[in-house]
């Protein structure tokens, strides 16, 4: 339809205008401004001086001593490392639980399948903050898990299991919050999988494990990759879970960014960390685009 009348092209532009303008002005430009902030000098109480400076990025690796010399400081690298590690662990947990669940749902009759999907979708769309908060009541001191230990006297009143404010609590929170994002795409690809291929595998002497690794896994790879990405990216930048469940010590990238903007008031440094987070996302999205191109060539032709 290259030769649409001119007014149709105009109409199209007008229709696309508002959405593009809003996202362009209030999303794209802010990210660009933030990127440039990361190369400016910090003002003492928030804001920036318009002077170019690489300090924000230097600060990630080095500590500036009193005599202005730089000393390698692992503090922020540890936070980056923790973010990546916890996001990976959460992703693996989601995969280990999510795949079998998705398989189970995909093998149910249609009516029950839809019911299951609804049941998994509902918590996902309910308030993340509130759902994470619920875990404080479960994991916390005197929480649901500790109660039986106290009743049986296994746990003295002054003792605690110490489940809260730990990397463990953060991982539970991340897994809990994002696991629907693992189940749904895997389910989508398993539902499309022709079950007679599994039968063909068994017919051709594959054991259960061989059928799983030679046929089911390769054919549901697009769903698995999408699920891993959908869990990993928000986990990496998570704020609520490390903030509520991790306590002050277990910072992740998300909480660090927020801290720099709200408490430390070092905007260039906060922007630099946000840029690093964004860089991670871009890299993973690019890897995903590549992987999904690869698997698409299997289907089309």
């Amino acid at each position: 339809m290259a030769n649409l009348p001119e007014n149709a092209a105009l109409r199209r532009t007008l229709a696309l205008g508002p959405a593009l303008a809003i996202i362009g002005i209030f999303m794209l430009i802010p990210v660009i401004i933030m990127a440039s902030y990361s190369f400016l000098e910090a003002k003492s109480f928030g804001g920036v001086n318009w002077v170019f400076s690489g300090d924000a990025y230097v600060q990630l690796f080095y500590e500036r001593m009193l005599d202005d010399s730089l000393r390698l400081s692992p503090g922020y690298l540890i936070i980056i490392g923790r973010s990546v590690a916890l996001a990976l662990v959460a992703m693996v947990c989601c995969l280990l639980v999510g795949f079998p669940v998705a398989w189970f749902i995909a093998r149910q009759p249609l009516r029950q399948r839809n019911m299951w999907i609804l049941l998994i979708t509902i918590p996902f769309w309910t308030n993340q903050l509130v759902r994470t908060f619920a875990w404080i009541i479960i994991l916390g001191r005197n929480g649901v898990i500790e109660v039986p230990f106290r009743w049986t006297g296994l746990l003295a009143p002054e003792q605690t299991l110490g489940l809260m404010y730990s990397n463990f609590a953060i991982t539970v929170g991340l897994t809990y919050t994002f696991i629907p994002l693992m189940v749904l795409p895997i389910y989508a690809s398993l539902e499309k999988l022709d079950f007679s291929l599994v039968e063909a595998g068994a017919d051709l002497y594959s054991s259960r494990w061989e059928t799983f690794s030679n046929i089911i896994i390769p054919l549901s790879k697009p769903g698995i990759i999408a699920g891993c990405l959908l869990v990993f990216i928000p986990s990496l930048g998570a704020f609520i879970q490390p903030d509520l469940l991790g306590g002050g010590k277990n910072l992740m990238l998300g909480t660090l960014v927020q801290f720099q903007f709200s408490t430390a008031r070092n905007w260039p440094f906060g922007s630099a960390i946000a840029m690093i987070l964004l860089a991670f996302v871009v890299v993973f999205l690019m890897l995903y685009a590549r992987a999904s191109r690869g698997s698409k060539s299997l289907e089309v032709h």
Partner: peptide
């Protein structure tokens, strides 16, 4: 199934894509 010396030609062929 995987221990039966029997093979099947499926209606939809079911070739591994």
């Amino acid at each position: 199934t995987h221990k039966r010396p029997v093979n099947t030609v499926f209606q939809s062929y079911s070739l591994f894509p």
